[in-house]
């Protein structure tokens, strides 16, 4: 038998998992370029959410909390990578296996690689908007910056990607 808050949280986690897990892992993979690490970051976010359920208790707030946690978790990973840059554990960048590359994917890879060259905040803003499909307010809250800052990071990011985009078209 579990206390009520515990089992409520368990049920909520199951629903939220079904609704958001895959998308958040993909989002984090676009941030980090590493699927395994991305999964860990997202799982951490769900575990943290479970602990805060008593205070959130509301699916919309929970989805926002998950987003913020994932963005924050990815930033932490990037910081650790910065520290560990002398001993990279794996080659940086997105490295799909050969059989994953279908027609058109090479072009997508070029864009993703260009994305990886952008400053972190610009990459976040672009991925949250153009992959996540989130509103400006949602992105601002996940990145803990103002709406205006979201706009400027996104537009500078787009400008930075322009070269890769042109190659592709």
């Amino acid at each position: 038998m579990q206390d009520r808050t515990g089992s409520e949280a368990d049920e909520a986690i199951t629903d939220l998992y079904a609704a958001h897990y895959v998308r958040l892992v993909r989002l984090a993979t676009l941030f980090l370029g590493d699927e395994a690490v991305a999964e860990e970051v997202v799982q951490d976010a769900f575990v943290a959410l479970h602990g805060r359920w008593r205070r959130l208790r509301e699916p919309a707030a929970a989805a926002g909390y998950l987003r913020t946690s994932v963005v924050h978790g990815c930033r932490s990973v990037q910081r650790r990578r910065g520290v560990a840059a002398r001993h990279p554990e794996q080659p940086p960048g997105y490295a799909p296996s050969a059989e994953q590359i279908a027609v058109g994917d090479a072009a997508a890879d070029a864009v993703v690689e260009a994305l990886r060259g952008l400053p972190e905040r610009q990459r976040e803003a672009l991925v949250l908007r153009y992959y996540g499909g989130y509103s400006e307010a949602e992105i601002a809250s996940a990145m803990k910056i103002s709406n205006g800052a979201v706009k400027s990071h996104a537009s500078r990011g787009l400008a930075g990607l322009r070269a890769a985009m042109t190659d592709w078209s």
Binding site: Y17, Y21, T29, E39, A108
Partner: peptide
Amino acid sequence: RLHDALHRAADRVQPGPDGLARIRRRTAV
């Protein structure tokens, strides 16, 4: 085009089947 490229790249990512079990294991109350 950016939207399409990101989706194309992201959709190749297939999370493992045991994500929920791993989370559950850590939240057992």
